[in-house]
Amino acid sequence: MDISSNNKGVFVAGSYNLDIVSRVASFPQKGETVRVLSKKFLSGGKGANQATACRRVTEDTHFFAKIGHDDFAKRAKQHLEEQQFASLTLAETHHSPTGVALIMVSEREKDNYIVLDLGANLKVSDADIQEITPQIEQASVVLVQLENNIEAVSAVLRKAKALAKTTILNPAPYHDQVHTLLPLVDVITPNETEASELSGIVIHDIETAEQAARVIHRMGVTNVIITLGGNGCLTYDGNEFKRFLSYPADVVDTSGAGDAFNGSLAAFLSLGKTLSESINFATAFASCSVENEGAANMPSMAQVEAKLTTVRK
């Protein structure tokens, strides 16, 4: 079954992390030390990145995150205020630091490794959720990930479903309790690794991806979208499978591709587009994102519109 929203905007509840990005020639082998070619401090976090991607597509983007009371929190506020969200709610805690991600990007492998210290992202309380209820009420699409405490993610999804919102879960990073959330989810967007962990089926080709999608759908999710990196994505709604091939890209940095896909998918759905239209748009948006350096460096609409005119693989 295809879905579309009623054009009322997107609410993203998620994480903010300061990304410490180190670029290397090639990933180190076990026991090997490699030199860093360059190092940057960038704003990130799956929630913040997805909200930023969403904001590129629609002004009606609302974002919530929790940060510490430290120097990194100042960077968070400055960066997020610059995005000009329709609303920005930042809860703070004195008991945990602002989240940090250590990211290694390899020039040879064209890929990345990420190590997280989620800090304040794991301290979202019931009171914090109560505060953002008006923003959830205003949106038609609610997007969440798993860089917050699972109880908070569940509370947001329950509230969104009670208000008849379209709910999207990006199950990253994978959490062993994610299956408890699935009956609350309209659209789930795992990558190959997450879909393998969730379904128990190791994905190594399209056939095994289809098997995994069937298993995940039976867990209670209406629409399953398994992202396949450079191979696009596979969708399943209980009736049929669809393939969406990737658009060509000159790859610079893949670290924000999944966030680009999820944020733009939610945004396009909120504009009243069908799920199929939104997936095609998000595939092009993600292809543009890997041509930019930095997970939060999302493409412009002009870049995406140009990408949509190119021939897909």
Results as ranks from 00 to 15, higher is better:
residue 30 K to F: 13
residue 27 F to P: 05
residue 210 E to N: 11
residue 225 I to F: 03
residue 263 G to N: 05
residue 276 S to C: 12
residue 101 A to V: 07
residue 202 V to G: 15
residue 237 D to Y: 05
residue 53 A to I: 07
residue 83 Q to N: 10
residue 158 R to A: 10
residue 211 Q to P: 03
residue 151 E to I: 10
residue 209 A to Q: 03
residue 159 K to D: 11
residue 275 L to E: 00
residue 296 A to V: 11
residue 250 D to F: 12
residue 296 A to Q: 14
residue 167 T to M: 10
residue 278 S to W: 04
residue 67 I to D: 06
residue 206 I to K: 11
residue 51 A to V: 08
residue 24 V to P: 02
residue 69 H to F: 14
residue 242 K to S: 12
residue 256 G to I: 00
residue 157 L to S: 09
residue 233 C to L: 14
residue 163 L to Y: 07
residue 286 A to G: 09
residue 50 Q to S: 02
residue 277 E to A: 04
residue 130 Q to S: 14
residue 56 R to P: 04
residue 15 S to P: 06
residue 186 D to I: 02
residue 119 G to Q: 08
residue 30 K to Q: 15
residue 228 L to V: 10
residue 291 E to G: 11
residue 172 A to N: 05
residue 288 C to W: 01
residue 111 D to N: 15
residue 122 L to W: 03
residue 298 M to E: 05
residue 254 T to H: 08
residue 222 T to D: 14
residue 169 L to C: 04
residue 153 V to G: 02
residue 1 M to H: 12
residue 119 G to A: 06
residue 162 A to P: 02
residue 304 V to Y: 07
residue 116 L to C: 11
residue 94 H to Y: 15
residue 126 D to T: 13
residue 172 A to Y: 04
residue 202 V to Y: 13
residue 312 R to T: 14
residue 258 G to K: 06
residue 219 M to P: 06
residue 188 I to Y: 00
residue 1 M to N: 12
residue 172 A to V: 11
residue 230 G to Q: 15
residue 157 L to E: 07
residue 106 S to K: 06
residue 159 K to G: 06
residue 182 L to G: 06
residue 112 N to P: 10
residue 231 N to S: 14
residue 72 F to Q: 12
residue 305 E to H: 13
residue 296 A to D: 10
residue 178 V to R: 05
residue 107 E to N: 12
residue 94 H to N: 15
residue 291 E to N: 12
residue 42 L to G: 09
residue 90 L to M: 13
residue 83 Q to S: 05
residue 119 G to K: 00
residue 239 N to L: 14
residue 179 H to N: 14
residue 87 S to P: 04
residue 252 V to T: 09
residue 139 A to V: 03
residue 272 G to Q: 03
residue 113 Y to F: 15
residue 171 P to N: 02
residue 304 V to C: 09
residue 216 I to C: 00
residue 213 A to D: 09
residue 160 A to K: 09
residue 133 T to L: 15
residue 309 T to L: 13
residue 236 Y to W: 11
residue 192 E to G: 10
residue 280 N to G: 01
residue 275 L to W: 01
residue 181 L to D: 03
residue 253 D to R: 07
residue 308 L to K: 01
residue 197 E to H: 15
residue 38 S to Q: 11
residue 209 A to V: 08
residue 173 P to Q: 01
residue 152 A to I: 02
residue 174 Y to K: 07
residue 18 L to W: 03
residue 117 D to I: 15
residue 262 N to Q: 02
residue 248 P to S: 08
residue 120 A to M: 02
residue 264 S to N: 01
residue 228 L to K: 11
residue 181 L to S: 04
residue 6 N to E: 14
residue 56 R to A: 00
residue 259 D to A: 06
residue 95 H to E: 13
residue 303 Q to S: 15
residue 110 K to P: 01
residue 104 M to Y: 01
residue 262 N to K: 04
residue 129 I to V: 13
residue 32 E to I: 01
residue 130 Q to N: 13
residue 33 T to H: 04
residue 119 G to Y: 00
residue 185 V to C: 04
residue 156 V to L: 02
residue 292 N to M: 12
